[in-house]
Design a protein around this nucleic acid. Structure first.
Length: 424
DNA sequence: TCTGGGGTCCTAGGACCC
DNA sequence: TCTGGGGTCCTAGGACCC
């Protein structure tokens, strides 16, 4: 048996934990550039505010209903997430951290223990330790646990817990679940299935397996098997090594000059380097993309993307920034108002392997130098101790293109200075 | 005026091998 | 008119997840 523990309206709930005055008010959290609504409390959902709505389209509604609006505060959400996960790790022998607000727990060793009762204990414990409300779904496969969790969330009478441990319970749960709400079935696929009159999870479970395998993907065949109680997706107890790392942003205002874009690109490459070092990986490939707003007139739009091989597998900020800027020179077209850019590093390998392969060309290094490694170590150390950005390379700068973040809440759990401003 | 960010997996098809 | 068979590798792009 698998339990899926999923935090309710996670970002909105995080904002509430340290601000009790928000408990009776609708709360929404905005995307990185204060552009779209990406999290909503139950009260906000009840107002009809949809996921992904641009704020400017519902500003009146927000004001009329005194909705509390926040910029996204990932320091806070990341820290609250690890508190929730730490609490959960004590409650089951094995745990898979699936996303920032979800984890699977391995319940297979619980035997004849009352799982519904245990699920209620999980909810209480997480609430007590972190202040975050969660729902728990338990079932024989991960996909069914997802179904169960969804029912627990949608139906107040379940009180946050749904246990699917008998065939008739599973059957009725599948009949209640629309096919587009099944984990792994997205918009395109549900359109296709709907045309074949497959409208509920029960319909999908009952569809002839050979037809599914022939006309859909192998992943969808697994979804179907999981709905029918055959577990195809095992617990993943260790996070697999990342294959790529991306840093990208939309700009608070459109960027027109080469200099500003250069700074943005340098900053993103620098952030990728920090993430690489945190991951313990080196990258062999770098991709840069820059673009105008997709909402611009079609003739004003521009989208450029290009990848280059790095001189050797690296995690050095200066090497990556230099590479990203050289790609920018190839992609930059004057006369556009750029709205977004990003850097992706890929072909990652563990840092322990860096330099094992000798360069074919004798005058080329095969890995970062000892000086560069030491310098990066010192930089990361200083930034960890004194705060991100305490030291940076001169080319990294975020003045001109800085994203809008007008409603940022304090970092109550990660920054001492911020604790003082909390009231209530 | 204002429209997110960061990932993975799968497949089709081209280019190449013998 | 007739024109093999069996592979691998790589990439772009689509679809999905949160």
């Amino acid at each position: 048996m698998f339990a899926l523990v999923d935090c309710n309206n996670f970002y909105a709930s995080c904002e509430r934990v340290f601000n009790p005055a928000l408990r009776s008010r609708p709360v929404v959290v905005l995307s990185n550039n204060d552009g779209c609504i990406i999290a909503r409390s139950e009260e906000a959902k009840a107002l009809g505010i949809q996921m992904g709505t641009p704020v400017f389209k519902c500003r009146d509604l927000l004001r009329r209903n005194k909705v509390a609006v926040f910029s996204s505060n990932y320091s806070l959400y990341g820290d609250m997430s690890s508190r929730v996960m730490t609490t959960l790790a004590d409650l089951a022998p094995d745990i898979e951290l699936y996303s920032i607000d979800e984890a699977f727990l391995d319940m297979s060793s619980f035997g004849r223990y009352d799982l519904a009762k245990y699920a209620r204990l999980i909810r209480r414990r997480v609430r007590q330790h972190t202040g975050i409300p969660v729902c728990v779904g338990i079932a024989p496969t991960k996909t069914l646990a997802k179904v169960a969790n969804r029912l627990a969330k949608k139906n107040p009478q379940y009180q946050g817990v749904c246990l699917l441990d008998r065939a008739e319970l599973i059957a009725s749960a599948l009949a209640m679940t629309k096919v587009e709400d099944v984990w792994g079935i997205g918009r395109q696929l549900s359109k296709l299935l709907s045309a074949r009159n497959i409208k509920t999870a029960a319909d999908l479970a009952a569809a002839p397996a050979p037809w599914v395998r022939k006309h859909l993907h192998i992943t969808d065949a697994k979804v179907q098997a999981e709905l029918n109680g055959t577990s195809c997706l095992p617990m993943e107890l260790v996070r697999p090594a990342k294959q790529s790392i991306c840093t990208s942003r939309s700009f608070g205002k459109s960027v027109t000059t080469w200099e500003e874009l250069h700074q943005a690109v340098a900053t993103f490459a620098g952030k990728c380097a920090v993430k690489l070092r945190k991951e313990g990986a080196v990258a062999s490939m770098l991709t840069l993309f820059i673009g105008t707003s997709p909402f611009d007139d079609i003739e004003a739009r521009y989208w450029g993307t290009k990848s280059i091989a790095l001189p050797y597998p690296t995690q050095d900020s200066m090497t990556l920034i230099h590479a990203a800027q050289s790609v920018l020179d190839l992609l930059f077209r004057a006369g556009h108002g750029y709205k977004k850019a990003g850097v992706i590093v890929s072909e990652l390998s563990p840092v322990a392997f860096a330099g094992r392969t000798l360069s074919l060309f004798a005058d080329e290094a095969a890995a970062d130098s000892e000086q560069s490694k030491t310098l990066m170590l010192v930089m990361d150390g200083i930034n960890q101790r004194y705060g991100r950005g305490a030291v940076r390379l001169a080319s990294e700068n975020s003045v001109a293109w800085k994203p809008n973040q007008e409603q940022l809440s304090p970092c109550c759990t990660t920054r001492w200075g911020d604790i003082m401003v909390v009231k209530g």
